[in-house]
Structures are given as structure tokens and as C-alpha cells.
Simulated assay, not measured.
Amino acid sequence: MKLSSDITDFMERLGHQFDKPELIIRALTHASISTKTRPDNQRLEFLGDRVLGLTMAEALFSADKAATEGQLAPRFNALVRKEACAEVAREIDLGAVLKLGRSEMMTGGRRKEALLADAMEAVIAAVYLDAGFEVARDLVLRLWGERVESVDADSRDAKTSLQEWAQARHLAPPKYVTISRDGPDHAPVFEIEAQLENGETARAKARAKRQAEQAAARALLDRMEKKA
């Protein structure tokens, strides 16, 4: 199978040359453009998530032999969550080679965090199917780089941390309210307010709704911890 120059350039950035090029094509094909003869990357995404998870679990387990499960779990979550996958995808410019339907392209699909994260997991699965676990593991560790070594021992999803803070004080789970959505459809900016049952709130803006929620949660949690 002859690959286009943009795909071969991407493989250079990725650091893996495929013996079965159909795998990378499928990994980069979004459901919005798939057909019966051109399958999308959703099944690969499912597999890649597991390959990524095992790689990170193994790396963290080996790196800190004294860490408890309670210490390892938040580190693991920080490394495999969608934000981390999308960040790595941006570093290798994965969005430039995503195969998208017209509607997704018109709404900025190449920059969407969820699409980038899902495609990154699919690419990991493609490498795994093409060359085996060891090659896929080495590729993941190289792409994630210093993130694995520098992941904060107390790293934790901000929304999870805020919910745990609220539960410990017998408060209802935090609520996240969209205050505004500005900008063009292809590059929206969300303003989200995190709200606690005790009346405390904090707002944050970001280009992705999930990122804005996380930032608002972090701001509110920081405020409550300073008041303690």
C-alpha cells in the first residue's frame, strides 16, 4: 500500500515505520468519514487504551517500589487521561493527518481534545498490532518522556479531588455550570463555574469544556484549602 507524503512524514514524527500500513490508516480514520470498506479507529482506540494503561502501570510500579496503591493510582490517572493523550498527539502533530468528515473538519475537529486523544490511543494500538507489545511500550515511554518521571506523587484529577473534598465534609458533589461559550465554532472558549453546596464558587476559561471544568475545580479547591 502506497502512503501519502503526509502519512509518511507522520510516521517519522511518530518514530515507527509500519509493516502493515493499513493499520496506521485505520488508526487515523474518524467515524465521521468511515465506510464499510474504510473502518474507523474506534476498535483500535479501545485496544490502545489498554496498551497505554499496562505500559504506564508497569512503568510506575517499577519506578517506585515503595509506593502504595493509593499513591500509584493518581499518578497513573494523570498519565493516561484524555488531556495527557491529546497533549502528546499535539506534540507529534497528529491532528494534521486525521481523516475527518466535512462536518468535523468545519468545526475544528483536528484540534478537538477528545478526537486527538482517541486517535492517539488508536495509533498506539496500531503499533502494538504491527510490531508487538515491547515496541508499542517503548514508543509510548518515548513519547510520554519526562511525564512519567516527573508525574507528581500527589497528582490527581482536580474534579475528583474537589469531589472528595466535598464528600469528606458531607457536602453534595460539585456542580459545573456553563457561564458562556464565545468565539467561532471551530475555536470556542468556554467559561465554566464550579459550585459547591456551601455557596463557594470559582470560574475558569479554556478552549475545551473539560479543561475549563478542571481549571475551575482546581481554583475552587485551592481557595477552600487556603481557608482551612
Rank of each mutant, 00 (worst) to 15 (best):
K2Y: 07
L3A: 12
S4A: 15
D6S: 14
T8I: 14
D9F: 05
F10M: 08
F10S: 03
R13I: 09
G15D: 07
Q17M: 08
K20I: 08
E22N: 11
T35S: 12
R38C: 08
R38S: 13
N41D: 02
N41E: 07
R43F: 03
E45F: 00
L47A: 05
D49N: 09
R50P: 06
A57E: 07
A57P: 00
A57F: 06
A59W: 04
D64M: 05
K65C: 11
T68E: 10
T68K: 02
G70V: 02
L72E: 05
A73H: 07
P74L: 06
R75Y: 01
A78D: 07
V80R: 03
R81A: 12
R81Y: 05
C85P: 01
E87G: 09
A89Y: 01
R90P: 11
R90N: 14
R90V: 13
D93G: 08
G95E: 10
V97F: 02
L98S: 11
L100E: 06
L100Q: 03
M105L: 13
T107L: 10
G108C: 08
G108A: 09
R110L: 11
R111A: 15
E113M: 14
L115R: 00
L116V: 04
L116D: 07
A122S: 11
V123D: 12
A125Q: 00
V127L: 09
V127W: 05
E134C: 05
A136M: 04
V140I: 15
V140K: 03
V140M: 10
G145C: 11
R147H: 09
V148C: 07
S150Q: 08
V151F: 01
D152Q: 04
A153N: 04
S155A: 15
L162H: 01
E164L: 11
E164D: 13
A166L: 06
A166G: 07
R169S: 11
H170W: 06
L171Y: 07
T178E: 13
D182M: 05
H186C: 13
V189M: 13
V189E: 11
F190M: 11
E193L: 08
E197S: 12
G199F: 00
G199V: 02
E200V: 06
T201V: 13
T201I: 07
T201M: 05
R203S: 14
K205C: 14
K209E: 12
K209L: 14
A212W: 00
Q214N: 11
R218I: 02
R218Y: 03
A219E: 11
L220D: 02
K227L: 15
A228E: 15
